[in-house]
Amino acid sequence: MKEELKVNDKDIVVPGETIATGMSFLPGPGTYRYESNIVAQKLGMVSVDGKVIKLITLSGKYDPKVKDRVIGRVVDVLMTGWRFDINCPYSAVLNMKDAVSEFIPRGADLTQYFNISDYAIGMITNVTSQKLVDIATKGPGLRKLRGGRIISVSPKKVPRIIGKEGSMVTLIKEKTGCDIVVGQNGLVWISGEPHQEVVAVNTIKTIEQQAHLSGLTERVSEMLANGGSQ
């Protein structure tokens, strides 16, 4: 059997499509070996890293991971904490002791800290095999969100919105003067001048649409220079 790549780097492949033949290639995330071939297991973009073949997924739900910074919405007030919707198949629990730095006395009304439909930036502290998720809202950069607007984007496109070491989101922040927090779960909080918020929203939506294309930074800075239109 000839050992070769059947597709180019950065090509889109569909489940069941053979990416490479021969045992010298290794299956990475999103691929599997069938006989001596490497076959795609998802709809995604091929990324060849030496002999390892990976797939970058372009769609799908958020998969909670420890130490991720996410934006959540309170859906329930419990006896000892709060339940958050973190835009994924499983809800997250915020315990009283991880919520605020001040002391919460026994029998206190928990709604004065977080009430239903409040938004907060949280850090995922634990995920069990049964996907019971714990979060904390106490720590650097973690807080309750007040004002601004929340938009939702595909969680798989979040790395593109943040950019290399935050370059893309910093660019939008500088050009629009908005405060922006991008949660790993695909929720984005934007707060600033109303018309600048709109510019930021449009820019982020464009990045989401074109996440799989290269030369994005140039197009985004061009777009921001035109006041948010392409």
């Binding site: 569909v14 489940p15 069941g16 999103g30 599997y32 069938y34 076959v39 297991q41 998802k42 709809l43 995604g44 997924t57 372009l58 769609s59 799908g60 739900k61 798989k156």
Partner: peptide
Amino acid sequence: LADAGLTMKDL
């Protein structure tokens, strides 16, 4: 199902 980004061994 593929469009939803789920893991599938084939279509």
